[in-house]
Simulated scan of single mutants.
Amino acid sequence: MLDTTKMIKRLACASLLAVLAACGSAPVAPGFYRVERGDTLSKIARSNRQAVQSIVRWNNLANPDSIEVGQVLRVAPPGGAASTSGAVRSNGSASASATPRAAPVESAPSAAPAPTISLVWPADGTVFRRFDGGNSKGIDISAAAGTPVIAAAPGTVVYAGNGLRGYGNLLILKHNGEYLTAYAHNRLLLVKEGESVNRGEKIAEMGDTDTDRVMLHFELRYQGRSIDPSRALPPR
């Protein structure tokens, strides 16, 4: 029990998967906020004296009701531009003298970016489920048991184990300060935590641990938030 608890805490502190509650996070730049357990967009907006609509616009949020633990949100106008909601006094009321200004064209670091990481396919097989940002946080590939699973990019193994419910035998690779890839449901893990791996190196064998079919569930995460791996993979 003690080893499992330590393993889950280590996952959470590293912000490896948004499905875990963060017990500690790297600091974010001024004007940004990292989502914590129990947060809602309206709560974050009130805490930062901004309009919900402004935060939605600054972060290109398609669904304001769907934010994830560990997600980094812009909570201040880009470039120091005034919020279109007007200046806010200490009592929370809008200042009548404040003149809203149109904000410039904005880009949101927390919105799913065009990936600047180049990946190779982590396994041969048939993609039977694709990323949708909701029920599917990655892509699912089916093939025969024992099919080689390879590192999609060079990196370091930051997790190797089966302590995360629903993922079976899981590997997580860290590629730089912003990107992680996850490889779930393996029958055999061939690398250990702390090891460096090369692109295309065999790291596991496909299996059906904690699932009802042989498959590889593959995720790509940017700043702790899941994004579509297909955007960084070559066409098939």
Results as ranks from 00 to 15, higher is better:
M1E: 12
D3Y: 11
T5G: 14
K6M: 14
L11C: 06
L11V: 14
A12L: 07
A12G: 12
C13L: 14
S15P: 01
L16P: 04
L17K: 03
A18Y: 08
L20D: 11
A22K: 05
A22W: 06
C23W: 07
V28T: 15
A29T: 10
P30D: 15
Y33W: 07
R34L: 09
V35Q: 00
V35F: 02
R37C: 06
D39M: 02
T40Y: 00
S42Y: 02
A45R: 00
R46N: 09
R46H: 06
R46P: 00
S47Y: 01
N48L: 05
N48D: 04
R49F: 04
Q50L: 13
A51G: 02
A51M: 10
V56Q: 01
W58E: 08
N59P: 04
N63A: 05
P64H: 03
D65Y: 08
S66A: 08
E68F: 13
V69I: 13
V69K: 02
Q71G: 00
A76C: 02
G79M: 07
A81M: 06
A81Q: 03
N91D: 15
N91L: 08
A94L: 09
S95A: 15
S95F: 10
S97Q: 09
S97F: 13
R101W: 09
A102H: 07
P104A: 12
P104F: 11
E106K: 10
S107P: 09
A108C: 14
P109K: 05
P109F: 08
P113C: 03
A114W: 08
P115N: 11
